[in-house]
Design a protein around this nucleic acid. Structure first.
Lengths: 209, 209
DNA sequence: ACATACATACCTGTCGATCGGTATGTAAAC
DNA sequence: GTTTACATACCGATCGACAGGTATGTATGT
């Protein structure tokens, strides 16, 4: 009935701890520069545990991308921007929400899969595809609102809901690149303001300022 | 008077050959996954030559970013989009030019410094700053045209020429991320169409379709 | 008892980096 | 105008550290 005096990871926790370590380390150091030993040290497990949980380093990369997709998927599903009645308001609230969560350390608000896919798209198709699923899966969650807004505003546009949904992700991913380069989060929020303005204009061209 | 029968790199060429190898390899494999040996093999020189030309691998990264800035700077300075009389036409022609050169292998049209900065922003401030100079230096070349267009169209907007110039780079960098993830260049051109539409709308709000 | 979930020890190749040496140029001395 | 002196450009062997990965041992739950 006695508890260990020093914290030891519970049995069964190693995989989750390694995935959480992967999110932390890969987001700041990149995939290639993050070694298996780094991951084990951060997670507080040994190499034996690592290769018990994952076949190899690439498999961890794939699992990390999927883990990211699950976590962010739940995070955005629970976010408050879905509450508006008007679909256009939901879209704009999404952009505002993305802007609001850009705060603090750059490695904490930027995107794991956007970072990782740039690095490994040519050397690991498996990781690339997992990253693609995360990005385009998230984009897909915006499509219904965009399509509804197009109906409400009676738009007969040359662009599609899918295309605009992807474009929002383009701006977000690019915003992270500039924020990293300039070491300044406001470089990211600035572009989200342009995105907000764009969406307002294409849904209501006459009201542009 | 005899010429060597087999091609040997001329004396003095090693540095340039290594920089060209760096552009090729880092754009497809990333910075960390590109080893010094890889670079030497691609350039056709030895490790001795490498560490004669560059103090260490990080110095090559910085030099590669600067080399990229020089090459692309000359490339865009010579490009035909500057020829239009109207400044707004020059801006739109720039976007069209960026769209037109998205073709072929992904590693051949994507951006070295955008890729590299995502990977190393936290582990090498020197490379990060060199990448930032390239990105924001290029953005700066667009500012005069944007400022002129704002005057011609008598805009009194909440956004600045600097901000819109940076936003164009945001969209371009993000477009590369999505193209790499989906392994499809049309994912990049699609967002440039949205950027074109945005620029037309903010300079002439009533004419939006 | 047996499988699962790890830990420990270690192997092999590759990493960035160093170093002594050599070939080539350059410029002043005589 | 040849010799001397030195600098530059590059080669190739080698280093210690560390990479990813494996082989084997051990504790734990069922």
């Amino acid at each position: 009935m006695s508890r260990p005096t020093k914290y030891q990871p519970e049995r069964g926790e190693a995989k989750t701890r390694l995935l959480e370590a992967a999110l932390l380390l890969i987001r700041s150091k990149g995939y290639s520069a993050t070694s298996v030993a780094d991951l084990c040290e951060e997670a507080g497990v040994t190499k034996g545990a690592f290769f018990h949980c994952f076949e190899n380093k690439e498999a961890l990369g794939v699992a990390a991308a999927n883990f990211w997709a699950e976590n962010t998927g739940a995070f955005f599903a629970d976010a408050p921007y879905h509450q508006h009645d008007d679909p256009l308001e939901r879209i704009l609230a999404y952009v505002a929400f993305r802007k609001a969560i850009i705060d603090g350390d750059i490695s904490e608000f930027t995107c794991l899969v956007g970072t990782m896919v740039q690095e490994v798209y040519a050397i690991s198709p498996a990781i690339r595809d997992a990253c693609a699923n995360s990005i385009f899966g998230h984009a897909h969650t915006l499509e219904a609102d965009i399509a509804d807004a197009m109906k409400v505003h009676k738009l007969d546009s040359v662009w599609t809901a899918e295309s605009l949904a992807r474009h929002t992700q383009t701006v977000i991913q690019g915003a992270f690149v500039l924020a990293k380069a300039g070491n300044d989060p406001s470089l990211a929020t600035e572009s989200l303001d342009h995105l907000d303005r764009y969406i307002r204009l294409i849904f209501n061209p006459s009201k542009g300022s």
